[in-house]
Nucleic acid binder design. Structure first.
Length: 593
RNA sequence: GUUCCCUUAGUUAAAUGGAUAUAACAGGAGCCUCCUAAGCCCCAGUUGUGGGUUCGAUUCCCGCAGGGAACACCA
């Protein structure tokens, strides 16, 4: 279905053409003076030079051709040459009814859908998720959903950090603590136990302990490196122990991501490409791309047009060991071979920008990716505390993600209880907790996603839990209001199906309709620019338009059945659009709050 | 040191080169016998600085000041 702006631009272009001007000048845009008009066209000013004519004269010529238009109800040419436009009630009504009937509200889906792999989350096993992981998960999940909704085939991969020295450290510390474990007996040839010899909380304590020890103690570090080597070279007991670490850790990660409503299609990690690294390195050498520099193996990636220094991309460290670059490149190779994607999207902290420039160039140069495969790194900003510095707990530590979520949820339960009390109804504990979880998640996600991803933003617990203004809970509250009306309507024995939206009867209703009609253009932009914050801005405007309409219109007590049905249809569409949008942002609305 | 990014109201954030820069919070005033007041409504307040391009600049270009980040054996 064509976008509203395209349809009305077409009408305007026709008028420009009929008046003897270039039709391309007839591009219509949203009004930035809503007090004067709904839409505007600035083509007359752009054409002034070409036709050596005052812009206002051109605008008047064009306006004359639109006097009996079905699309524009009001057209006025004003100084210096703006065309101020209002569209007819009939036109907007038909547009919305078509939208309501169409799949995805008439969003145009691509002729050639792409296969996209999106790499986000990126946690390390055996380490708890902390607030730093929040953005990658929240933004990545939203982008995944947006691309999928837009019609592409999307695969989300968590890309676990499960292979490096950290694993050797954990194994070493376990050996010190429990040297008699069967895993350390080289002569053992039987089956290893199915149960892990540790719990997730032990694991989370072991890693930092081991890490601290290795920094202070050379011998300890040597042991850890040896353990890493044994693991990577496939010693049975070490592999079995490693598998336990992965299993225990992944189970915990799944639980945590589930609480965030974040899901991955693939749970692959660095370890999955271990076996293909030697072959890849060999190819790079053979192709003449990789050479030795200061003992390390590198590939030059600087280009003549660079204004800045782009250091070579390191493939192997001087001790021959692989590093982040190596596994990332091997992962690209693996993904190309297994999935043949048209596009790879990476979500990380924006500080890794230069790093990804190096890796992408290296991948292209060495032929790991096809010419027409797009590589995109989306760097997001830091989540800061109120002081503008990276978010910390009160005592200066790194805050665990589950603690952050718990704090928000507790505050939310308090608010729900308080609200129930002032309104005088009972709320049982379980229902309150369930609602709190839903609303809390919306607060966190909307708070994050409503900012441009690339910018740092301030996570202000007080503001996020205050629930006033431009927040997730405000959006949810609006949806709950609509649902409540629709439910009451159904309770009257009526049905929501087959209702038709009529012409708007007042300004607030027309505003709501115009807001709904912007949906397609907004969604297209949000997809193209991979910009979830545009969806946030849109649903905030839409919710505002609805609340304004709601305030002025008594819907259920309306006696004119036709009017009432039209409003119910309009509300249904509003609810559906809002719910689709919040789903793309990765949260949902409760039935009441 | 080199390079990149950022600077919008008291605060946090928006704005394909278009008219009077948009909201939220905080501040001040109003609206619940009426579909959820987590709402609605009114008031007050902003583009760091100096140039340039343009009919028109928060937006594009150059300089300055202030803030942040990156710059091969971490990820």
């Amino acid at each position: 279905m064509e976008k509203l702006l395209d349809l009305i631009s077409e009408e305007m272009k026709r008028a420009f053409e009929e008046a003897g001007y270039d039709r391309e000048l007839g591009r219509v845009t949203l009004s930035n003076r809503p007090d004067l008009c709904e839409f505007q066209c600035n083509g007359a000013m752009a054409g002034a030079k070409k036709y050596h004519k005052a812009p206002l004269m051109i605008a008047q010529d064009v306006a004359e051709k639109l006097t009996d238009s079905d699309v524009f109800g009001e057209v006025s040419a004003v100084a210096p040459g703006f065309l101020n436009l209002k569209i007819t009630e009939t036109f907007i009504k038909s547009y919305l009814n078509e939208m309501a009937r169409s799949e995805k509200f008439g969003l145009t889906t691509p002729v050639n859908p792409k296969k996209i792999i999106i790499d986000y989350g990126g946690p390390n096993v055996a380490k708890p998720l902390h607030v730093g992981h929040l953005r990658s998960g929240v933004i990545g999940e939203s982008i995944k959903r947006i691309c999928r909704y837009a019609g592409h085939e999307v695969i989300g991969d968590i890309h676990l950090g499960d292979w490096g020295l950290q694993m050797g450290l954990i194994i070493t510390e376990l050996q010190k603590r429990q040297p008699d474990l069967i895993y350390f007996d080289d002569s053992y040839e039987g089956e290893y136990p199915a149960e892990a010899p540790f719990t997730i909380s032990e694991l989370e304590e072991i890693y930092p302990t081991a890490s601290a020890k290795s920094k202070a103690d050379e011998a300890y570090k040597a042991d850890a490196m040896d353990a890493t080597y044994k693991l990577q070279s496939g010693v049975r007991g070490y592999r079995a122990l490693w598998q336990h670490i992965i299993d225990v850790s992944v189970a915990d990660l799944k639980k945590n991501y589930e609480n965030l409503n974040v899901t991955f299609d693939l749970w692959k990690g660095e370890s999955d490409v271990h076996d293909i690294i030697p072959g890849m390195v060999e190819e790079m050498k053979k192709g003449g791309y990789a050479y030795e520099s200061d003992g390390a193996l590198v590939v030059d990636v600087k280009e003549e047009t660079d204004t800045k220094e782009v250091p070579p991309c390191m493939i192997l460290k001087s001790d021959g060991a692989s590093l982040y670059n190596t596994t990332d490149l091997a992962t690209i190779l693996d993904r190309m071979e297994q999935y043949h994607p048209d596009k790879l999207i990476y979500l990380t902290d924006k500080r890794q920008e230069l790093y990804f420039v190096q890796v992408f160039r290296c991948a292209r140069k060495t032929g790991l990716v096809k010419e027409d495969t797009e590589l995109l790194h989306i760097g997001f900003g830091t989540m800061n505390g109120k002081d503008g510095k990276p978010f910390k707990t009160r005592d200066g530590g790194v805050m665990r993600l589950e603690n952050l979520i718990r704090e928000i949820n507790e505050e939310m339960i308090r608010k729900i209880r308080e609200n129930a009390e002032t309104k005088g109804y009972e709320v049982d504990g379980e229902a309150a907790a369930e609602t709190a979880k839903i609303v809390g998640l919306a607060a966190i996600k909307y708070g994050d996603l409503s900012n441009q991803a690339s910018k740092d933003y301030i996570f202000d617990m007080d503001r996020f839990t205050s629930f006033e203004g431009d927040t997730g809970p405000y959006i949810l509250y609006t949806i709950v209001r609509i649902k409540s009306i629709l439910n009451k309507y159904i309770e009257q024995g009526k049905k929501l199906t087959d209702l038709v939206i009529g012409e708007p009867v007042n300004d607030s209703e027309k505003s709501l309709m115009l807001e709904l009609a912007k949906y397609n253009a907004m969604m297209e932009t949000a997809c193209e620019e991979v910009a979830p914050h545009k969806i946030c801005a849109y649903i905030y405007d839409l919710a505002n338009a609805f609340n304004h309409f709601y305030h002025e219109t008594k819907i259920l007590t309306e006696e004119d059945e036709q009017k009432k049905e039209s409003w119910i249809a309009l509300l249904t569409l509003t609810r559906d659009v809002l719910e689709v949008c919040i789903d793309l942002l990765g949260f949902s609305a409760p039935d009441r709050m």
